[in-house]
Design a protein around this nucleic acid. Structure first.
Lengths: 345, 345
DNA sequence: AGCACCTGCGTTAACGTACACGCAAATGAG
DNA sequence: CTCATTTGCGTGTACGTTAACGCAGGTGCT
């Protein structure tokens, strides 16, 4: 391995000059630059990243903007867990993060949070961009040219660095295939449950499902923060097993239905497909009141978000502009193996 | 962040002494050691890993011992791919590997390979320990105290550092559940295909399957390197769809059966469950002649094998002694998302 | 007592890069 | 022709840890 001094000697200049030419800073003549560049390629010089890191003692201070972890049936705890894993792994590399949480529908508090972020210095951002418009405005006023990673959902029109996430239409297709397979006979009806949040993932998961399902369907939209949840559920209860022969829940609230199925003594008789390995869903998978849970690796999404910024800022390695997770099928039989995996990090 | 000199000052000694005490090397008195340890905890001193790496300029030269990549229907290309990804990511950290491939049943050539390995210097080993006894002998004569990672299968009695792999009985259970779900009626028979290799994973996958399958079964053992493969297949062909109502292949050769199913025009009529995303299986998944493929993330196994050694040798971070992969269910609908994932890293 | 050896610890160079500083030569303005 | 400014490049130091080296004082042996 040749060093910067070797290059300098070969080009007949000093190490300082080589450094200036490599980083295109300070002043130098084009002729020397050519000689130096030739020497670099002759010797196959690569700057020693360890010495570089040591010398620069780069820091990577990340601000994470995402909903409160306990929202959506603890869903947001999952990417959070992945981020914490990455941060621990990289703690020695001076990668740190500060977390800023918000409610999806409280714009005032969001603005307040942004004011807090402005008071501090960050080198990069990880964001679940649920509040499209608010986030877009920040590119001019807050992010400057600092790298921004979106996870969970994307704003394609934005100058973000990378999106780490999911393809939800495909997930809907898969859910429909599993449902089709579990139900025999033709005169059946599937209940689809979603919310009125306007969340793109949810509409995509429903659209995909409808494209491939072989049975009649009926869709119920549950409000985001329902004050009358029991009432809604009670309307569904009597129809389970009679009118509805299967249930598809497009988000993490699947366990509510599982609970009712269990109370009605209909386990294993009503196929139930939902999303996300949140604690209540795990419990019902174990009892087989939920047939299948689909996930797009939220823990990995969190992990990769931090890791991607580390690679860019500390190692100077670029990543793909889109990193899409596979759709995992989880059922009673492989659940344990998934939960074990979490402990690996 | 306090530095080693701060600790030294506080304990009234020099930096060299602190270093010796931290690493428990050289000579020092217990009294000074106590003072220094107190100073370390008072100041919450952590050795700066970047400075440490820079100073030591640690190298991690890994020898990888595994079957030739093209064996088992290209199966071994998968962990190999994961290792190459890790090596590229870590190239800047002076992690390098040399690959030594063997045939599972050629002991002479294996010994020859070992002689070649002895000629060079390695800091760590990654091994698919298919030849149990041969590998066990190497702990005394080759590995010394260097860390050894086993992947794919394990030798629990050995002093290896970590095992990265699979739980195959569970995979068999899952395969049976999927098969049960795809077949209605009761008077059915499932064909089970395995080999006579004695490979533990295969027997476990069959055992697990038998524990949970609801139908009659018949098992055919195909020799490892069959000279009469066509003959064997032709015996099966006429029974497909008549005698056998489903096929379970416990290893990566599933595509042979898929091919026959296609030729007989029995697509989607005969459920077929197999293992591993090798190219031929991918093709048949797309055509839906294979219903489900199960995998235990061989690419990740390779990736983690290298990464684990990097963490230990370069970062000084220990890993769990067993890292088990989840069992992934792959079908036509989520296949694309899995293949996309490969390109992330 | 004399000598060899051991113990505990301080000193120092080395690792390779980045960057601030400043000198000398070249250039330009008047 | 002089002085100020710009250009091109060399010098030197900092970054924090490691580990070789060696010194001073103590211990043990003959």
């Amino acid at each position: 391995m040749s060093k910067i001094k070797d290059v300098a000697k070969r080009a007949g200049v000093s190490a300082g000059t080589v450094d200036r030419i490599i980083h295109n800073r300070g002043r130098f003549s084009e002729e020397t630059a050519d000689r130096v560049r030739k020497a670099i390629s002759d010797l196959n010089y690569k700057t020693d990243i360890r010495a570089r890191n040591f010398s620069l003692s780069l820091k990577c201070r990340i601000a994470v903007l995402m909903p409160f972890p306990e929202l959506n049936n603890d869903y947001w705890k999952l990417p959070l867990e992945g981020m914490k894993n990455a941060l621990e792994e990289l703690s020695a590399s001076h990668v740190t993060a500060e977390f800023f949480h918000f409610h999806e529908y409280n714009h005032d508090k969001f603005q307040n949070m942004i004011r807090n972020i402005r008071k501090k210095q960050f080198d990069a951002f990880v964001i679940a961009p649920l509040l499209h418009d608010e986030i877009l405005k920040l590119f001019d006023t807050l992010f400057d040219d600092k790298p921004v990673v979106f996870f969970d959902s994307d704003i394609e029109s934005s100058p973000r660095y990378t999106y780490i996430g999911q393809k939800s239409v495909e997930a809907g297709h898969l859910a429909a295939k599993l449902m089709n397979q579990m139900i025999s006979g033709s005169d059946n009806k599937i209940l689809i449950i979603t919310t009125d949040s306007g969340n793109e993932h949810l509409t995509d998961r429903v659209t995909g499902f409808l494209e491939k399902i072989s049975f009649k369907t009926e869709t119920i939209e549950i409000p985001v923060n329902p004050d009358n949840m029991t009432e809604i559920l009670e309307k569904i209860r009597p129809k389970l097993g009679s009118e509805y022969n299967g249930v598809y829940v497009a988000y993490s609230s699947c366990h509510y239905i599982a609970q009712m199925i269990e109370e009605q003594g209909l386990e294993k008789k009503i196929p139930l497909v939902g999303y996300d390995l949140v604690p209540d869903n795990i419990m019902h998978l174990e009892r087989e009141t939920i047939s299948y849970i689909l996930t797009q690796r939220p823990i990995d999404q969190g992990y990769l978000s931090i890791k991607t910024l580390y690679k860019k800022i500390i190692l100077g390695q670029e990543s793909a502009s889109e990193q899409l997770m596979p759709i995992d099928i989880i059922t009673q039989e492989n659940l344990a193996s998934y939960i074990r995996m979490r402990e690996i990090s």
